[in-house]
Amino acid sequence: MYFLYFDPGLGAMLIQAVVAAVAAIVLFSKNLMFKIKSFLGLIKDNDQDLFDDIDVDDSEIEKNTKSDN
Protein backbone atom coordinates (compact mmCIF):
# COMPACT_ATOMS: atom_id res chain seq x y z
CA MET A 1 0.00 0.00 0.00
CA TYR A 2 1.21 3.48 -0.80
CA PHE A 3 0.34 6.56 1.21
CA LEU A 4 -1.39 8.78 -1.30
CA TYR A 5 -0.51 12.04 0.40
CA PHE A 6 -0.53 13.75 -2.97
CA ASP A 7 -2.64 13.15 -6.04
CA PRO A 8 -0.70 11.21 -8.64
CA GLY A 9 -3.39 12.14 -11.20
CA LEU A 10 -5.55 9.45 -12.75
CA GLY A 11 -4.80 10.69 -16.26
CA ALA A 12 -1.09 10.64 -15.47
CA MET A 13 -1.32 7.03 -14.25
CA LEU A 14 -3.26 5.86 -17.29
CA ILE A 15 -1.14 7.66 -19.84
CA GLN A 16 2.12 6.03 -18.80
CA ALA A 17 1.41 2.99 -20.98
CA VAL A 18 1.31 5.33 -24.01
CA VAL A 19 4.35 7.32 -22.88
CA ALA A 20 6.28 4.09 -22.35
CA ALA A 21 5.41 2.87 -25.85
CA VAL A 22 6.59 6.14 -27.39
CA ALA A 23 9.73 6.03 -25.23
CA ALA A 24 10.47 2.50 -26.43
CA ILE A 25 10.32 3.62 -30.05
CA VAL A 26 12.45 6.70 -29.36
CA LEU A 27 15.06 4.66 -27.50
CA PHE A 28 15.06 1.94 -30.14
CA SER A 29 15.62 4.39 -32.99
CA LYS A 30 18.28 6.18 -30.96
CA ASN A 31 20.17 2.93 -30.41
CA LEU A 32 19.79 2.06 -34.06
CA MET A 33 21.17 5.45 -35.12
CA PHE A 34 24.02 5.02 -32.67
CA LYS A 35 24.91 1.64 -34.19
CA ILE A 36 24.76 3.00 -37.72
CA LYS A 37 26.85 6.01 -36.80
CA SER A 38 29.48 4.00 -34.96
CA PHE A 39 29.61 1.57 -37.91
CA LEU A 40 30.30 4.55 -40.17
CA GLY A 41 32.77 5.97 -37.65
CA LEU A 42 30.75 9.11 -37.01
CA ILE A 43 30.74 8.96 -33.20
CA LYS A 44 32.93 11.51 -31.54
CA ASP A 45 34.00 11.16 -27.94
CA ASN A 46 32.33 13.95 -26.10
CA ASP A 47 34.60 14.84 -23.21
CA GLN A 48 32.75 18.09 -22.72
CA ASP A 49 29.73 16.36 -21.19
CA LEU A 50 28.84 18.01 -17.92
CA PHE A 51 26.65 15.12 -16.82
CA ASP A 52 27.26 11.39 -16.78
CA ASP A 53 24.98 8.50 -17.70
CA ILE A 54 21.86 7.48 -15.87
CA ASP A 55 23.42 4.39 -14.31
CA VAL A 56 24.81 4.69 -10.83
CA ASP A 57 28.44 3.91 -11.36
CA ASP A 58 29.38 0.71 -9.50
CA SER A 59 33.09 1.39 -9.79
CA GLU A 60 32.48 4.75 -8.15
CA ILE A 61 30.78 3.01 -5.24
CA GLU A 62 33.67 0.52 -4.97
CA LYS A 63 36.30 3.21 -5.14
CA ASN A 64 34.65 5.28 -2.43
CA THR A 65 34.23 2.22 -0.24
CA LYS A 66 37.93 1.58 -0.41
CA SER A 67 38.92 5.14 0.35
CA ASP A 68 36.49 5.19 3.27
CA ASN A 69 38.16 2.25 4.95
Binding site: P8, G9, L10, M13, V22, A23
Partner: peptide
Protein backbone atom coordinates in the same frame (compact mmCIF):
# COMPACT_ATOMS: atom_id res chain seq x y z
CA UNK B 1 -5.58 12.92 -20.12
CA UNK B 2 -5.41 14.89 -16.90
CA UNK B 3 -8.12 17.22 -18.11
CA UNK B 4 -10.34 14.35 -19.15
CA UNK B 5 -9.98 12.43 -15.92
CA UNK B 6 -9.81 15.24 -13.40
CA UNK B 7 -13.36 14.75 -12.25
CA UNK B 8 -13.14 11.03 -11.87
CA UNK B 9 -13.10 10.26 -8.19
CA UNK B 10 -13.59 6.52 -8.39
CA UNK B 11 -9.94 5.93 -7.72
CA UNK B 12 -9.36 4.01 -10.91
CA UNK B 13 -5.70 4.93 -10.81
CA UNK B 14 -5.10 1.66 -9.01
CA UNK B 15 -6.25 -0.32 -12.00
CA UNK B 16 -3.76 1.08 -14.50
CA UNK B 17 -0.75 -1.11 -15.06
CA UNK B 18 2.69 -0.74 -16.57
CA UNK B 19 5.54 -3.23 -16.76
CA UNK B 20 8.86 -2.44 -15.11
CA UNK B 21 10.51 -2.44 -18.53
CA UNK B 22 7.95 0.12 -19.68
CA UNK B 23 8.66 2.32 -16.71
CA UNK B 24 12.40 2.05 -17.26
CA UNK B 25 11.82 3.18 -20.85
CA UNK B 26 10.03 6.30 -19.61
CA UNK B 27 12.81 7.07 -17.13
CA UNK B 28 15.58 6.55 -19.68
CA UNK B 29 13.93 8.58 -22.42
Amino acid sequence: FEDKHNEDYKGEAKTSSLSKKGQLNIIES
